[in-house]
Structures are given as C-alpha cells and as structure tokens.
Computed example of a mutant assay.
Amino acid sequence: MTESIVDGGNELPHLSVADGPRYDCRDAYVATLSELAHDDHRIVGVVNDSIGSSKLNSFRKAFPDRLINVGIAEQDMVGIAAGLANGGRIPFVSAASCFLTARALEQIKADVAYSDHNVKLCGMSPGVAYGELGPTHHSIEDIAWLRAIANMTIIVPADPIETAAALRWAAGIEGPVFVRVSRMRVPQVNADDYEFVPGKALTMRSGDDVTLIANGTVLWRALVAAERLAADGISVRVLSMPTVKPLDVEAVIAAAAQTAAIVTVEESSTAGGLGGAVAETVVAHHPTRVTILGIPEFAPTGSAGYLLDRYGMSPEGIAESARRLLEHR
C-alpha cells in the first residue's frame, strides 16, 4: 500500500506507509544530537541513568565530557539542566517520559518554564511504548501536564525524519521545548526534505467529508484508515499535527468549517492532549462533531500495538469512528 503525501495541495513523492520498513526514532535522536553537538560545543546531554534506553552510548563515546549522568534522580536532572542553561549551555535532557514529566514536574514548571530557561526536554519511550511494564511506565499524561505550563513548546514527531527536524529546530531557538521520542517502530511518513515548522499542521491528504488529525506513532495508522475510508467513497482530510502547543488553530478551524466532522488520534490521554486542544479550538471558533481517540484510563499491560488497537486506534478502528460520525451529518 502506498500513500500520497500532500502539503498545501502539492503532492510529494509517494511513500510506503503500511508495508515499508519501520524505524526506532531514538536512532534519529542520537544521530541528530551527535551532529548538533559536533557543530556546537554548548550542547550537552543530561540523563537519569538511562544512557542505554536513550541509545546514547555513541554520544557518550564521542563526547565523554558532555554527557552528565545524574543517576535515578529526575528532579535533580531537570534542575541541573536549568543551571547549565543559565551558564550558557544547551542541555538536552533525556529520560523515560513517564519519569521525566511526572517525577520532575515541579522542576519543569519552576526551574525551566517559569524561568524560561533554554532546556530541551526529550521524553523517551512515551505513550504505551513500555506496554508490558504496565501503568507505572505508560506515559499517557505527559502532554496534558505540559500543555498546562506556560512557555513550553510541545512536539510529538511521527517518524525519524520529523524527529530529527524537530530536534534541529529546538537546538536553534531559545526557550523550553518538550519533544516526544518514540521507541515504537514506525514507518517513514514524511519526505526526506521535510522541514519542521512549529505550530504548523501538514496536510497529508486532502478531503472534504471528514478530517483525521493525528501525530506521533499513530499518524501512519490514520493514513491507512483514510485509504480504507476512501475505498468506501469517503473523502478524508488527514492533518499531521506535530506541534500540540502551539496548535495550528487555523488548520483546525478550516477542518471544522470544510468537513463534516473531526476525529483526533493520539498515543496519549483523551483528556488534555491533542484531542483536548482541538476540541477547545472547535468549541471557541466553529462547533462541529469531534471524536477523540486516545487512552481514557490506566491502560493494562500488553504490547503497545495491542493497547493501541484496544482503544480504537487500529486503522479499522479509526475508520469506524469516522464512519459513525458521518452517519449523522
């Protein structure tokens, strides 16, 4: 199966979505961080005894004096990163998203965001990537927590291309940024020359019946769902929304005005994440029917794929949600 990727009406090269190779975005993360560090001596890594799970062994070998391992002390890790930023460094904080955002939330709020320090928070293995380890390791609340904090840009890349592009952008701007870095293998859905633009949605497919808005590891599932709906004669718009904050408000309003309904899809909580941001925008500007697909509870143990399917985020589950909305148009 192939998918036509469309940006602003201009068709980009066809990319294999369902049947192509799958990539671990942590590989793109360490390769890009090493590239950035080579070009800028200010860039340092800060980790919480997670060098292996962050795949930072090659970075440590190349820059042994620029990787600071604080041990299992997430609050200290974020505080140290803020201090490094205050001293002119550009720290990339790498830790499992569930521990980074939960244990160190106060430090993220006070030391990084409130102080507006130039810290890049990299939430590794987010969502349900640690599926078999259960609810203590699921990181489904991270987007909702961080959306409530001012000064924080929140990025959820969908593939290694977008991961690398987002990291390069983050390194080049001043201020706090949170980037989700997936370990769940995903296909490439963005063109090789893709450039990340904060607060900008990418139109992956044009349509005027229903809009699917997705990001992260489930974007490719939304693209496959769109193909299945198209086979039924349903015209589907697919928006990739890598930046949850700031949200592309104009793209959401256009979708609400130009299509009959919206389905949001995300590997995070149904409360306060991408779906919440879209719903808030729709209610304020152009009310329409919205279905929010995500994880509404403490998810059980099980593989990441099983959990996504369980909560309606298989390609067929996404397509069925769209069909149900369109029954009442």
Rank of each mutant, 00 (worst) to 15 (best):
K120V: 00
N215G: 11
D116S: 15
E132A: 11
I143N: 01
S139W: 04
A95E: 10
R26C: 08
V44Y: 06
I155T: 02
A201P: 07
G276D: 07
R323V: 01
H286T: 14
D27P: 04
N57H: 14
V236G: 04
V70A: 05
A257E: 15
D24P: 05
A214V: 02
F196N: 08
S50V: 13
E162C: 08
M1W: 14
E267P: 04
V17D: 08
F178R: 03
G71F: 04
R42S: 04
F298V: 03
S16F: 11
L15H: 14
V283E: 10
L247D: 07
M184E: 14
A62S: 10
Y130Q: 09
W169R: 04
T217A: 09
V249D: 09
V17Y: 12
V249H: 13
I5F: 12
R168A: 05
G45W: 05
V186G: 08
A82S: 12
R289C: 08
R180P: 01
E106P: 04
I173M: 12
E106V: 02
D111H: 10
G20Q: 10
A225V: 06
T163S: 07
E320T: 11
H38S: 15
R185L: 11
R103L: 00
V112K: 01
D39A: 10
E3R: 15
D142S: 04
G83N: 01
V93G: 02
A102V: 13
L202T: 15
K120P: 01
H328L: 10
A222S: 13
V46D: 02
K245N: 15
P64I: 05
D19F: 14
V189K: 01
S235A: 13
A201R: 07
V78G: 05
K245P: 12
V6G: 05
D193M: 07
G276R: 07
P198V: 13
V177Q: 03
P300E: 04
K55A: 02
E250A: 13
L239Y: 03
Q107P: 03
G127P: 06
N48I: 11
E250I: 09
Y306A: 13
M313P: 06
T32L: 06
G20E: 09
V156S: 10
R60P: 12
E141T: 05
G9A: 01
S50K: 12
A261W: 08
I90Q: 07
F178S: 03
T301Y: 03
I234P: 04
D19V: 13
P21Y: 08
V119F: 00
Y306M: 12
A85R: 03
Q258L: 13
L15P: 06
G131Q: 00
N69L: 02
G294N: 00
L307K: 07
N215K: 11
T203D: 10
A171G: 05
D192S: 15
S34K: 08
A81N: 00
G52V: 02
A62G: 08
S54T: 12
V197R: 13
V238E: 01
Q107G: 07
T259R: 10
D248L: 00
V93D: 05
D65T: 15
G88P: 11
G175F: 08
